[in-house]
Design a protein around this nucleic acid. Sequence first.
DNA 1: GTCTATAGGCAGATAGAC
DNA 2: GTCTATCTGCCTATAGAC
Lengths: 195, 195
Amino acid sequence: MSVARNRKESGTAERMLDIAERLVQIRGFSNFSYADIATELGITKASLHYHYPGKAELGLALITRYAERFNQALDEIDRDLPDARSRLEAYVDLYAGVLRNERMCMCGILAAEYQTLPDAMRASVIRFFDENQTWLAKLLEDGRADGTLNYVGHAEDVAQGILSTLEGAMLVARPYGDLRRFDAAAKPLLASLTA
Amino acid sequence: MSVARNRKESGTAERMLDIAERLVQIRGFSNFSYADIATELGITKASLHYHYPGKAELGLALITRYAERFNQALDEIDRDLPDARSRLEAYVDLYAGVLRNERMCMCGILAAEYQTLPDAMRASVIRFFDENQTWLAKLLEDGRADGTLNYVGHAEDVAQGILSTLEGAMLVARPYGDLRRFDAAAKPLLASLTA
DNA sequence: GTCTATAGGCAGATAGAC
DNA sequence: GTCTATCTGCCTATAGAC
């Protein structure tokens, strides 16, 4: 695989990830092929195996990059927004943005095909959810402290609920192609957490 | 296909559906094959095509039967339980029961692979969600009337939110193999709707 | 209704030349 | 890094005998 240059090389490996990422989020991991990527990239299937020897390795790289970027986005939210309530709104909007691109959360769609995933990918899907939940739990505690959020019970439990609700809202909204379906789940969720 | 006898013949066609139903709910529609069914049933792949000529027809029959049974369960809930609040609890428990069998809601998992489904199947997935939502919306209105449920806004919107939340709770809970994850989303949902 | 046999396609993957 | 050529395996599906 090509040497990591300072930033934003757009080599073949990176472009493979871009294409595969979109395909996974739209069709699912088992419903796209090396042939799909090759066609779109304008090179042969065989060449792709030079960059990622097998689909399992490609899949792992896909989740890893996705999770990294997601965590970066969470860091930016923490940096840019002052209170827990507005951070939660930004988090919800992160999900809405995925849906606006007519995609599903990568780890949400991988959760659906979890039983057929390579082991390494399974662990990474779980890790993505765990990281989301940890971030949310901290957010909830901050929200209690700064008075912008309100909830009963343990922050970890509420965080689980938020994650599940947003994943489900994406899952169901996408077949309808209707963003308002996402809002129908997200808005009451936000309302129920508002102090 | 065999003539419809009065009830509960368990012919090959029916047993195909039983096996395929479980496989879909665990692996997804594109991740099981006629070979899987044939092995489990002890007959050859070719024989299966006599009952359902193609996978699209099989898939359609799967959703149709699933939705029928689901609607029957909803009728029973309406018949057996007195107030909206207890009916809603029974509805939530219907979903929990699917998860207890280590399965995902069939239409939830099909929603994840929606973009790769045959047209006829797509329409049936949407219909399943619509029927759920209609039933829930009526339930919510009854709950307002009998004083056992409480919510703001339109019943249809809240119904969308409930459906999304439960589907998401199943989706995320299953990789963990942990029913408590489902509860973490379901309990606050019920709490937020309780008068 | 179920069988054998087979077609035809596409999947992921490898060897070796350039 | 990318190519051609090829392999092996699985998939859905069909023809025709029993």
